[in-house]
């Protein structure tokens, strides 16, 4: 087995005539946490969706755990790779109870011990058992995002793809969710790919990151290098400066 959990070579995605991802190559090691930052329209979410198999119109090569994947993913793929979406208000089915939302994966894969797995997933994201039979609209934003994380964990995946997992949350809730994600990665040896527009959030959770601009991955560097101001690409520097100047109070 190779050390590379994810290996992407020359990924290209087009919407009609417009190419939005222009030849992105990146590799993520087993157990690593890799961040992708960029402004809206930079193509960062499109890359993540291609990795997740939600976008079928891409070219290039994507390997997971040394195995190349195609446009359509077999069912077993989703036991290895799961995703957490940006909007905790939009990513939970409005007419299904939390119980139903969480058990869907188990039903699709015909897994046993539904109750046990469900309760363990809720426990892992520190949600009380009492939320199990509620509907999403009865939960707070933070609780919903925990449900979304629990749904991903129930597959016992190796890779978690995170699409702006905290950008719709209040800052105090964001801290809780970021801590939770950090602990889960440590305890379960997960590999993360996180997309975010917020550089400090990426720097907090990830050890290495890539910067995207106009569909290209313009720079890849470690978070240490980023902090030590060793970024070389002007766009990276620009983002760092902006983040520094706005995040600290006067």
């Amino acid at each position: 087995m190779s050390d590379k959990m994810i290996d992407v070579r020359d990924l290209r995605v087009s919407f009609g005539a417009k190419e939005v991802v222009k030849g992105v190559s990146l590799a993520v090691q087993r157990g690593e946490s890799f961040g992708v930052v960029g402004e809206s329209g930079s193509g960062k979410s499109t890359v993540l969706r291609a990795l997740a198999g939600l976008n079928h119109h891409w070219s290039g090569e994507i390997d997971f755990d040394g195995v190349p994947v195609g446009a359509k993913r077999p069912r077993a793929f989703f036991r290895k790779v799961q995703m957490v979406f940006q909007d905790p208000f939009g990513s939970l089915h409005p007419r299904q109870t939390i119980d139903r939302i969480l058990s869907e994966f188990l039903a699709v894969h015909g897994m046993d011990d539904m109750d046990g797995r469900l309760n363990r997933a809720l426990e892992a994201v520190a949600l009380p058992q009492s939320v199990r039979f509620r509907f999403p609209h009865q939960l707070s934003g933070g609780q919903r995002q925990r449900v979304a994380i629990a749904r991903a964990l129930i597959a016992e995946p190796k890779v978690l793809l995170l699409d702006e997992p905290t950008s719709a949350l209040d800052v105090s809730v964001q801290a809780e969710v970021l801590n939770l994600l950090a602990h889960l990665r440590e305890s379960r040896g997960l590999t993360y790919v996180m997309v975010s527009h917020n550089l400090s959030v990426v720097a907090h959770l990830c050890s290495r990151l890539g910067v995207m601009q106009h569909g290209e991955l313009v720079e890849q560097l470690s978070v240490e290098d980023l902090r030590a101001r060793r970024a070389t690409h002007p766009h990276t520097r620009e983002l760092v400066e902006l983040s520094r100047s706005l995040e600290t109070p006067v």
Binding site: L54, F85, Q86, G90, S91, F105, V108
Partner: peptide, 13 residues
């Protein structure tokens, strides 16, 4: 194209 349907697709259904 809502996220909750994509999330179901991510179960492999």
């Amino acid at each position: 194209n809502s996220e909750f349907i994509e999330a179901v697709a991510m179960t492999g259904a």
